[in-house]
Design a protein around this nucleic acid. Structure first.
Lengths: 167, 167
DNA sequence: ATGACTGCAAACACTTTGCAGCTCG
DNA sequence: CGAGCTGCAAAGTGTTTGCAGTCAT
């Protein structure tokens, strides 16, 4: 039995993302800046997948309060990944980010119709991964799996549409 | 038991890649050209993963016999994917191609040390994928899994090096 | 103060595209 | 002959980088 679920539960963590990042910065002699504080809030207020462009879109524009240049957004996203706050992966040519800190490991179903990413967890999947790797003398550090197809909603919509077409 | 293996066996197919592609072109009113013929040979002579740049590198240069412009290489690679001859996926920002026609479905271990892609097949993996998808009402059309880590050889090399460091 | 950070613009790597001429069917 | 193809160069993406001024510590 696989442990798929519609929405994943956050893990309980002792430090907030902000605190965690502060720690990360301090141990490396890096600095707290208003941009970094603002970005961490922006990123952790949305519990969804996003790419740099989407993030920039919902940030203040040039000239407005709290504007952050795209260069800094790109730079900071990479820092968040280094700090273990975010995970990133490639999808359709661009880099997609998602929460990592305080969030359980999981994989994705990708609906090619509505381009939605749906999360799932499967312990057996990880077991098989490790078995295969062990057989081949490969030391696993992680993996990325994306299942393409059509999600429930789009499947429904499609069937409905077909019925209408017949009328 | 997973069916991992060091090297995958080609499937037996009734048409050669060339014939298959010819068929594809004809059914769509597209044309056989010397460039397309040359590229299909170049691609199917190497049974390895490659990106557009690597392919272009081992092709004749501008001015030489059988030169093909990079624009055409990119265009043709996409056609090969459409025709079901090649598969493509993203790795480290670039598009990686591999044989699909006459080659069994498989997944990859990716060595982050030597950047080698190692193939494996696992039937249980596919079963679990389908179970999870079914539970979530998702119609699967395919998947892509990449396991990151360190391969056997690099693991060896590393251990050796560590021993030496101790001397 | 001083080294890190930011914004800007330019550079980048990879890929796609417009166009004029060439070629297959 | 005409639609499709190719090479070229230019244009696009998405992302990174050099630099000069600014700011946190």
């Amino acid at each position: 039995m696989s442990s798929a679920s519609e929405s994943l539960q956050p893990l309980s963590v002792s430090l907030s993302p902000q605190e965690r990042f502060e720690e990360y910065l301090q141990t490396r002699g890096l600095r707290q800046t208003s941009q970094r504080k603002f970005l961490i809030d922006a990123v952790f207020s949305e519990h969804d997948h996003f790419d740099a462009d989407e993030l920039i879109d919902r940030l203040p524009r040039r000239g407005q309060e709290n504007y952050v240049s795209s260069a800094t957004v790109y730079r900071t996203l990479r820092e968040f990944v280094d700090a273990g706050l975010l995970k990133s992966f490639q999808l359709d040519g661009r880099t997609v980010y998602e929460l990592d800190y305080g969030y359980p490991a999981h994989d994705h179903l990708y609906c090619t119709r509505c381009r939605k990413l749906i999360e799932f967890q499967s312990e057996p999947l990880v077991q098989i991964r490790d078995e295969v790797a062990a057989e081949m003398g490969f030391r696993v550090s992680g993996h990325r799996m994306i299942v393409q197809g059509v999600c429930k909603d789009c499947g429904k919509a499609r069937r409905k549409k077909r019925k209408q077409d017949l009328v």
